[in-house]
């Protein structure tokens, strides 16, 4: 009665909603770790991919590790090392963000129907989840002040793209390679962010990107 992939997708959508509504940095990072785990687990439960090649398995394991442990771990360290405030500091309030999240889901349902792709069953839901996650990430980047939340938004965006790829392609191994490339980029991005954050923190005593506005002429 309960379809596994459905449960995972619903949980991913919920994690998007929760991340829009969470006010604490640490909670946000934990939610992102959970989301990473769910996103990387999703392909296993998609019915057509019961058989994975050994390379696929390796990629898959690496991806799971990076998404659930490495990146969130780095972010966690960034938050604890640089003594920044634990509040998320939204530009758009939490209530409005939750409503926006619901609106984004409705919007992605609409877009999915409009695209008119003949996706069957689970794949339509997958696409909806993908678009929601993607736009949720974009929204998070737009509506929060801190640099670290921008990275988290980017992470969510990446999760969305990953899901989108899963929904649209017939899942050849090329996807893994592309995805892996993106993931490495992200990893480098997180590291660079760590360094930059450290520097911003030393210069301005805070990591609010609002301060970067002072750098303009």
């Amino acid at each position: 009665m309960i379809n596994n992939i459905d449960v995972i997708l619903v949980l991913i959508l919920l994690s998007v909603l929760l991340s829009l509504g969470s006010s604490r940095m640490m909670t946000l990072i934990k939610i992102m770790a959970l989301q990473g785990a769910l996103v990387s687990l999703a392909p296993i439960f998609l019915d057509q991919h019961s058989r994975l090649s050994s390379g696929g398995v390796l990629f898959f394991q690496l991806m799971f590790l990076i998404k659930t442990a490495l990146i969130p771990g780095l972010l966690y360290m960034a938050v604890t090392k640089i003594s920044i405030k634990r509040e998320v500091e939204p530009i758009i309030g939490y209530h409005a963000s939750i409503f926006t999240g619901l609106g984004l889901i409705l919007l992605s349902v609409y877009i999915t129907q409009r695209l008119g792709l003949s996706l069957h069953g689970d794949y339509a839901v997958l696409l909806i989840t993908a678009i929601t996650t993607l736009s949720g990430g974009l929204f998070l980047m737009m509506s929060r002040t801190k640099a670290i939340t921008q990275v988290i938004g980017y992470l969510m965006l990446d999760n969305g793209i990953h899901l989108m790829g899963m929904a649209l392609t017939k899942h050849s191994h090329n996807l893994y390679i592309v995805e892996f490339g993106v993931l490495l980029d992200l990893l480098v991005g997180v590291m660079i962010m760590g360094i930059i954050l450290h520097n911003i923190n030393r210069t301005f005593d805070d990591v609010d990107t609002m301060y970067l506005g002072q750098l303009k002429d």
Binding site: L14, G21, V109, Q113, V125, I128
Partner: peptide, 25 residues
């Protein structure tokens, strides 16, 4: 001041369930 957010989360959960009934499952 966090109570409204708490109740809204509850609202969002069931609203979310409705969206899922729309044509997906």
């Amino acid at each position: 001041n966090l109570v409204p957010k708490y109740i809204l989360t509850s609202f969002a959960l069931s609203f979310f369930a409705i969206i899922l009934t729309m044509e997906i499952f």
